[in-house]
Design a protein around this nucleic acid. Structure first.
Lengths: 159, 159
DNA sequence: AAGTATAGTTAGGTACAACTAACTTTGTCA
DNA sequence: TGACAAAGTTAGTTGTACCTAACTATACTT
């Protein structure tokens, strides 16, 4: 509990944290330009966001310098990334959504769901995996179920 | 396809539409004051939103008059309400979340998830119900599964 | 019908999150 | 080492979504 202002970050700032976290992981460092590319925003938007993150004690950053996260920033980023992964797993491994689509949806939904629901979602993914170990393929069964009914619903429609 | 500007509404405007839709349903009409109460915003914010919705052809509204939705507005509102209901069902009936919590989460997530995932989520809720008919209570089993592991995880912790 | 309470609007302000254009700094390489 | 490209910043603008305070219109009540 260093000095954690738990003021709830905006979805946008959470995205910046997540991007910095992932870039540092993949590329070793987070450059402003790469953050802009990853998030699809202008470079100047990144500068603004970094100033904000610094002011909230979440990022270490100085003009023209490279960016790192503070331990608080890292904790928040890790949590966002965790939500992202759990959602993606659920969408892909349980609902059978295509990976690309799942990723995009997870990006949106990760900011909207709290610890309670995310925790249960993780449990659920694990539950489905455990049942699968026991020879009961819920995900596969569900795909059949969904396939049948969505064929019915869209048959002959323009869509 | 009347003249549908499919310009993707903001989460905020979707909330206004949903509130108007529900108020008209429950109370017979949507008064500005009630919209403000339901959404927890100031009356003046409602006025602004109504002007916007009117300009987008989604609400019929004139100064000091009462508000109705156009057929386009109703279609959008219905879709948002549908997402809300499907999410709530999933949270409550599958994940076993408390209703109040589920509602709040659904309000947030309904704006983040597209047709593909919502469709599958609906299927999934129906799948669980169908399995339950066949005597296989997946939701109940999952609750046990989740209960065991969350007891383990939080045992002895401050939380 | 007057007066007051309630409902609704307007005006003006704040914060956020993005943008473009113009500028500065940094890094590279011939 | 000096010029130039790439990276980063600043300034100024836009649009959204809120707010408060002050105003206006409507509705109720006697």
């Amino acid at each position: 509990m260093t000095s954690a202002k738990t003021e709830k970050l905006s979805a946008s700032l959470e995205d910046y944290l997540e991007a910095i976290f992932n870039l540092a992981d993949d590329a070793g460092q987070a450059r402003s330009k790469d953050i802009a590319t990853v998030l699809g925003v202008a470079k100047s938007s990144v500068t603004g966001a970094l100033q904000l993150l610094r002011s909230k004690g979440l990022a270490n950053y100085e003009r023209y310098g490279c960016v790192t996260l503070t331990s608080q920033g890292r904790a928040v980023a890790r949590e966002v990334a965790r939500k992202h992964d759990i959602l993606t797993s659920f969408f892909v491994d349980v609902l059978g959504v295509e990976k690309e689509t799942a990723q995009r949806a997870a990006c949106q939904a990760e900011h909207a769901l709290g610890a309670e629901i995310i925790g249960r979602l993780l449990s659920f993914v694990d539950y489905v995996a455990a049942r699968s170990q026991d020879g009961c393929d819920l995900a596969g069964e569900f795909r059949l179920f969904h396939g049948r009914r969505s064929v019915k619903r869209t048959r002959g429609q323009v869509q």
